[in-house]
């Protein structure tokens, strides 16, 4: 038995696991307030108009959320594609590329407020729906279709007579916009409430479906629908933040797979584009074979001592 494994069994490992979990939870709550810190907005039904709104945040966070201090990158990308008159969206795409190369899907697992909400929803019950593997594999491609169609193609090519287009994803799909922007604003502002119609109720219905899905299927929206997650997953194999497994230390107990919110098997899929780097597999591993690594300028092999 290795020293590390002994450590885990005698309690040191469990203490480390708790410390790591606490640090992660603190970061997640801090990022929630960092991206949505304008609390006054929720009371008076107004949105923040400070200079930080010209900066894209790394997560899906509606800029019409009363608390939002920054701009949503997916909303900004659609706006740039739809109103730039055919110009390449250098600023937004560069920002997304930088976030993707440095953080990758760590943003999904650690920073995203909508991811945090889904994790809380999953705590409502321990009952889970297991999506058949074939269906699951097909549904996971849906988020790439959403990215390509609703975020890029439709906003870029379907314009009105004035040369501008609508943010298709925000308008017809985004449940984060409904939850963070639509509901708080219509509750706080009577004029907006009176303007609600079929589109609003369609989005509320979609939000309800995502909430219900997230209760029984962990990270439902991240798995199947999120276009930002789809974009970041393109960087999974090269991003500075990555999961790593020491195969020689792995005892093949299967615990890592049982806690993965994305229904992956970390032993076989450590560099999967679906991994959101939440670190739960590293926490549960009794042999401490799995770890979250961050190295900006060097990459060691993902799988040590194969």
């Amino acid at each position: 038995m290795s020293g590390m494994h002994r450590d885990r069994l005698n309690g040191n490992g469990i203490r480390r696991e708790k410390q790591r979990r606490t640090v992660r939870n603190v970061i997640r709550i801090a990022s929630l307030f960092l991206f949505n810190g304008y609390l006054t907005g929720f009371r008076n039904g107004r949105i923040f108009t400070g200079r930080t709104k010209s900066v894209c945040v790394p997560v899906l966070n509606c800029y019409s959320c009363p608390g939002a201090l920054g701009a949503c990158p997916i909303g900004s990308l659609q706006a740039a594609l739809g109103t730039s008159g055919g110009r390449f969206p250098f600023y937004v795409l560069g920002t997304l590329m930088l976030f993707g190369a440095v953080l990758g899907r760590l943003t999904c697992g650690l920073l995203c407020p909508f991811g945090l909400i889904q994790d809380l929803l999953a705590k409502i019950t321990s009952k889970r729906i297991t999506v058949p593997k074939k269906t699951d594999r097909l549904l996971r491609y849906l988020k790439y279709a959403v990215l390509a169609l609703f975020v890029i193609i439709l906003p870029a090519f379907f314009r009105d007579d004035f040369g501008s287009s609508v943010p298709w994803f925000c308008k017809y799909i985004c449940p984060a916009g409904t939850l963070e922007g639509g509901i708080p604003l219509t509750l706080a502002d009577r004029a907006l409430r009176e303007m609600t119609g079929p589109l609003f109720w369609w989005k509320v219905l979609l939000l309800a479906a995502v909430i219900a899905g997230s209760v029984f299927i962990e990270r439902f929206f991240c798995r199947y629908l999120c276009p930002l997650g789809a974009f970041y997953s393109l960087f999974s194999r090269v991003s500075a933040a990555r999961m790593k497994i020491d195969s020689s230390a792995c005892i093949s107990c299967g615990k890592c797979g049982s806690v993965c919110p994305m229904a992956l098997d970390p032993v076989r899929q450590i560099s999967s584009a679906e991994c959101i780097l939440c670190g739960r597999c590293a926490d549960i591993c009794p042999a401490e074979a799995v770890s979250l690594r961050f190295s900006l300028f060097s990459v060691n092999a993902l799988r040590e001592k194969d």
């Binding site: 701009a71 308008k171 369609w202």
Partner: peptide
């Protein structure tokens, strides 16, 4: 381009909120 991002982000996006 950040000006366009800013201008979009400081106005309530009616499409975004449904």
């Amino acid at each position: 381009e950040y000006v366009s991002v800013f201008n979009k982000a400081v106005r309530i996006c009616l499409e975004c909120i449904g």
